[in-house]
């Protein structure tokens, strides 16, 4: 899945003087207030943080309340879906008009009928509403299916994703992966060379991204995407 990244940030957290005897606790509290909210500074929704180092010196601000700025280095796990990134999520509700998906267990996504490609048709199957592919009988989306979809837009306040199933390489992950595997066995060595590691660099306060397990996961996804686009 795309849209996830780890980034290193150099931050200065300003702490109220009353918390001077419990700085690390106060720092963690400040950082926790960022969780599950979109932060413009790091350009993403903070899902987790890990404090790397805490500067023992702090700068005291002059003023009525002498807040003091503690410098620290933090690793953030960010969720920042951009248009056309591919997300994965579980279908929680399906009607003819829309497919409702929950991504990573917290972000709601909705795919409206007009954003579902012609290939899929709405059907009632055994009393359950499904979207089934016309071309591949086994490609079915129903409640509980994990699907891959592309992002149309992202509401940063509510963390609501407007998704789309228009691109060819979207749909039920189970089906997509199964059908990709067949191809990938054929000419794996050739593909491998072409994959470029995606390095993530955050803007503003954030220094260069580290290649982490997440990045590697991302590489794989993009590799699959490449493969698939060739197939189709």
């Amino acid at each position: 899945m795309e849209g996830l990244k780890v980034s290193k940030a150099n931050l200065t957290v300003y702490i109220h003087p009353s918390k001077s005897n419990q700085v690390s606790q106060a720092v963690l509290r400040e950082l926790s207030s960022l969780l599950f909210t979109f932060s413009e500074i790091v350009d993403g929704v903070v899902l987790a943080y890990d404090v790397n180092s805490l500067d023992t010196c702090a700068k005291i601000l002059p003023g009525v309340h002498p807040y003091f700025g503690v410098k620290l280095k933090v690793n953030f796990l960010l969720f920042s879906p951009k248009p056309n990134t591919l997300l994965e999520g579980k279908v929680v509700k399906l009607t003819q008009e829309s497919i409702h998906v929950v991504v990573l267990g917290f972000s709601a996504a909705v795919i409206a009928e007009k954003d579902i490609r012609e290939e899929f048709v709405w059907k009632m199957k055994k009393g359950q509403e499904v979207y089934a592919s016309r071309s591949n009988k086994r490609h079915v989306i129903k409640v509980g299916t994990m699907i891959r979809f592309s992002v149309k837009s992202f509401d940063e306040e509510i963390l609501h994703v407007y998704g789309s199933l228009i691109p060819e390489h979207t749909g039920s992950i189970y089906w997509l992966d199964k059908n990709l595997e067949v191809v990938s066995h054929a000419d794996r060595s050739e593909k491998k060379k072409r994959i470029q590691p995606e390095r993530i660099v955050l803007e503003q306060d954030v220094v260069d991204g580290e290649l982490s397990t997440l990045d590697i996961a991302q590489k794989k996804t993009s590799a699959k995407r490449q493969k698939h686009s060739e197939d189709s």
């Binding site: 599950f36 929680v92 509700k93 409702h100 929950v102 267990g105 917290f106 972000s107 709601a108 509510i158 963390l159 609501h160």
Partner: peptide
């Protein structure tokens, strides 16, 4: 809450 997991926060 099932459809929009963050709704309870609001």
């Amino acid at each position: 809450a099932d459809l929009v997991p963050l709704a309870p926060l609001r």
